[in-house]
Simulated scan of single mutants.
Amino acid sequence: MKEVLTCYMCDSIATTKEHVPPKCLFPEKKDIGNDKYRLHLMTVPSCEEHNNTKSDDDEFLMVSLAGILGNNSIGYIHSQGKVLRAIRRSSYKLLKKVFLNSKNVKLEIKDNKFVDIIIGTPDVLRLKKSFEHIAYGIYYYHFNKRFDGIVKIFMDFIYYSKKNHQNYKDIIRDKVNFESKDKEKFGENKDVFYYQFLDEDEYGLLTLKLCFYGRIEVYAVFAKSDFELPGGMYLMNKLIDNGMKVIVKEDNTTYEFN
């Protein structure tokens, strides 16, 4: 008897498969010269709703990530190939979806050598939604079951103008990178994407590290639906939210809030 699979995001019967991360993030043969980056891609069972309704989000994510300054050569080639074709095909409307506001600037990379880049405010909420789907998908792929809880996303490649937000992100980044040093990296095409799971912490939180194009890091924290912050953490957050000066020390590094 054939096993009936359910969707990686909900309890609906799976009728199709979803690539995690989206297939469009991986370069095509005509841009890279071979199919190596589209072999052995990860898929999970999905219902029609959670597969077909997110194609626009997948393209949005592709344009948002591939062209980020500092990516490896694979990311750069992808940005000049499939990504640029998608932008031109949309008459550059895709860029307006990626940035809530933006401007073109010239960046000097060497003496009298400049490159044109775009800087602006990204659509953070839409990015988080895209990464949430990837996190749920990776969890299903890795553990062969759906995660029935909440996922909190932290994006290291985003710079926050508010000091407190930036400090929160820095604490998480430093902690994740320290604890992931000896953890196995999963993914057949690590120059494009790999992931690592950290050990579950004392509060029952499970952290997943996602890395795209050798540079872009995203951290997903899995928590049960009824999770509550421990008393000390709750008090610290309340003090910070109320404008009190708080100093946090982690592994010989000091982070100052307010």
Rank of each mutant, 00 (worst) to 15 (best):
E217F: 07
N72D: 07
I171V: 12
F114L: 13
F212E: 04
K96A: 13
F60H: 04
V192F: 10
N167L: 10
R126Q: 09
F114H: 14
F197I: 09
Q80K: 15
M155L: 15
L127G: 07
E188V: 05
G70C: 05
F26S: 00
K106T: 12
I240N: 06
I117L: 15
I109H: 07
K185R: 15
K2V: 11
V83M: 06
C7H: 04
Y140P: 00
I134G: 03
Y255G: 04
N144S: 14
N51D: 02
I117G: 06
Y136H: 14
N72L: 09
A135Y: 02
K163L: 12
R85G: 00
V248Q: 06
E188L: 12
V83A: 06
D199G: 10
T15V: 14
V221A: 10
F212C: 02
N71I: 08
S90F: 07
I134H: 02
K181N: 11
P22L: 06
L125S: 13
A135W: 01
L65N: 07
M244I: 10
S64M: 10
K110T: 08
K103C: 12
K36D: 10
Y136F: 15
M236E: 11
F222E: 03
G67F: 09
N252P: 01
K97A: 09
P27Y: 04
E184W: 04
Y136V: 02
L69P: 01
I74C: 05
L208H: 05
D123G: 05
D226I: 06
S90Y: 07
L61P: 01
V105P: 03
I216R: 03
E202Y: 04
M1T: 09
Y8E: 01
K113F: 11
D58L: 01
Q166M: 12
Y234L: 14
H142M: 13
M9P: 00
F143Q: 11
D123A: 15
T15P: 00
D11H: 09
E217S: 12
N112I: 08
G149S: 13
P27S: 09
G187V: 08
Y168E: 06
G120K: 08
T16Q: 06
A66G: 06
V105K: 15
K152I: 14
Y136Q: 10
I118W: 00
